[in-house]
């Protein structure tokens, strides 16, 4: 077979271009909050804390200038709030409602967007985010914030560990200097680094609804147009340890099933079955959330921990 020395593949122009390794530039989208305070069904204590948060930002001039708090509390013009509690308890809705009450727009941040596989890029993404928010006068909302604010690595063994700590340090610095509104929401506040906890002004705890709130949630999520025969008080009393989000899911599931069976009047049993299934899934999930930790003990520590040991083992 003749050899073609002018084969196309040997010419530099025909060589495939090296793939671009430039990290992507994030375009932050400024949006309007989707909820208002009146949409929230919360314990009065939680709701009042949200009002305090709003009042703080609305009355900054009164507090710091007129009443002279700036003399005692330097660098307090910014507002950092942490909304924490079990999933489905209204934290994301509340974040939107706070920002709406402040008549601001917002940037909703998912940690997956900020995190970069390139060492050092996550910090740059964070800096760019804060810059955009400042320029646009927008509040920043970090959902699932524990991914970003978790404890720093104390035993750094890799470039990744160094990068994680660098990101945390950059964020601490940004928090210190930022004069706008930042809201964090998390299901896992116990994972937060203590340095972040100190820099966040308000920590608002969201709890699972009590029987009174559950009744209101059932009433809210079942639209008046849906023909059903439901005792809301009974539903609320019978099924506890559920969130607003669980109730919303149960209503939707029951509605879909009722449509399938062409119910003229949706019976309460449909809602009970739906919420029962959700509770079962949550219980199974809770059982799987088991953590294991090991440590070695000295003989004295082992003896101190428990008294009933085989005598021959103790005296060995």
């Amino acid at each position: 077979m003749p050899i073609n020395r002018n084969h196309e593949l040997s010419t530099p122009a025909a060589l495939p271009q090296a793939s671009s390794r430039q990290p992507k530039v994030i375009q932050w989208q400024v949006v309007t909050p989707k909820h208002i305070l009146e949409d929230l069904i919360l314990a009065s204590e939680t709701y009042n804390q949200l009002l305090d948060v709003i009042s703080y930002f609305q009355n900054r001039d009164l507090l710091f200038r007129q009443w002279g708090l700036a003399e005692r509390f330097a660098s307090q013009a910014g507002l950092a709030v942490n909304l924490y509690g079990p999933p489905g308890t209204g934290k994301t809705l509340a974040a939107h409602a706070i920002i709406s009450a402040l008549e601001m727009s917002m940037i909703c941040v998912d940690y997956a967007e900020i995190e970069s596989k390139y060492v050092g890029e996550t910090s740059k993404n964070l800096s760019a985010l804060f810059k955009t928010a400042q320029e646009q006068g927008a509040a920043i909302f970090f959902d699932e914030a524990d991914a970003l604010l978790s404890k720093r690595v104390t035993n750094m063994t890799s470039a990744t560990d160094v990068s994680v700590n660098q990101t945390r340090s950059v964020l601490l610095n940004l928090l210190n200097n930022y004069q706008g509104v930042i809201i964090f929401a998390t299901n896992f506040v116990q994972n937060f680094d203590a340095a972040f906890l100190r820099r966040i002004k308000y920590h608002v705890h969201f709890q699972l609804p009590d029987v009174e709130l559950r009744e209101k949630l059932w009433q809210m999520y079942i639209p008046w147009q849906m023909p059903c025969h439901v005792d809301f008080a009974q539903l609320a009393a019978k099924y506890d340890n559920i969130s607003g989000s669980d109730i919303a899911s149960a209503v939707f599931t029951a509605a879909v099933q009722a449509a399938r069976f062409q119910d003229r009047l949706i019976p309460q049993s449909r809602f009970e079955q739906a919420i029962g299934n959700i509770i079962q899934v949550k219980k199974a999930n809770a059982d799987s959330e088991i953590t294991v930790r090991k440590r070695f003990l000295t003989e004295e520590q082992a003896k101190a921990e428990f008294k009933l040991l085989a005598k021959e083992e103790i005296e060995k």
Binding site: N241, E289, T291, V292, K294, R295, L297, T298, A302, F306
Partner: peptide, 19 residues
């Protein structure tokens, strides 16, 4: 949970969260 291998005692902790 307390276990022993040779002369070495070990404590293994298993936790879960409940409402």
């Amino acid at each position: 949970h307390y276990s022993k291998l040779g002369d070495v005692w070990q404590e293994t902790t298993v936790t879960r969260t409940v409402p």
